[in-house]
């Protein structure tokens, strides 16, 4: 086992999905020879999982529907709130606006954050004996940023020739090709 004491870890981008509401917080760190997942299931205790670069077989990224579902749900709520607001104004019960406007702004903030995050995804890391979800990644932009850091480290530790086509640095924010492939 290639493991030395007092590794210096650096944080990888991503804090997990906004919908998890911080109940299950997953952060990822890396050092020279492994990836460390820090899973906080309670507020104070955290569990660690290590994935040594020499054992990593593949990363599997799957586009999920969370982005679309959140967009649709938030848009419907915003539409209803807007209609309620209009009705409250027309029916001279403007006091209701004090309740509707903050709620509308809160929903709009979630919608904007979701739009800025971009399409959602889940990323799995595969080794010979396990397949684990990287909980810190919730969208494709974060996935690409993580890959840009991890891929060179994994390839350096495993040696061999790098696959020719994939360059995550170029692919950041451009996961969906412009034309059908």
């Amino acid at each position: 086992m290639n493991a030395s004491e007092n590794k210096v870890y650096e944080k990888l981008p991503g804090k997990g999905a906004i919908v998890s509401l911080g109940l299950l917080r997953v952060l990822a760190y890396y050092c020279d020879d492994h990836l460390l997942l820090v899973i906080s299931e309670s507020s104070y205790k955290e569990n660690y999982k290590r994935f040594y670069f020499k054992d990593v077989q593949a990363f599997l990224t799957r586009k999920t529907k969370t982005y679309t579902v959140v967009n649709v749900v938030m848009s419907i709520i915003m539409l209803f709130l807007f209609l309620f607001g209009v009705l409250a104004t027309v029916s001279r019960t403007r006091e209701l606006l004090f309740l509707i406007v903050p709620f509308f702004l809160a929903v709009a903030t979630i919608e904007i954050l979701n739009l800025l995050g971009g399409p959602s995804c889940e990323v799995l890391i595969q080794t010979a004996v396990q397949r684990e979800k990287l909980g810190n990644i919730s969208n494709l932009k974060t996935a690409d940023k993580n890959m840009a850091i991890l891929l060179p480290l994994i390839r350096a530790s495993q040696g061999g020739s790098a696959p020719p086509a994939f360059n995550p640095t170029e692919a950041v924010g451009e996961n969906i090709p412009p034309a059908d492939t």
């Binding site: 990593v56 077989q57 593949a58 599997l60 586009k63 890959m147 994994i154 495993q158 696959p163």
Partner: peptide, 16 residues
């Protein structure tokens, strides 16, 4: 037909 992307490494073809 799920949209997926797979990045593989030499460890995938390594025989234990």
């Amino acid at each position: 037909s799920e949209q997926i992307r797979i990045v593989t490494f030499p460890a995938l073809n390594r025989v234990a």
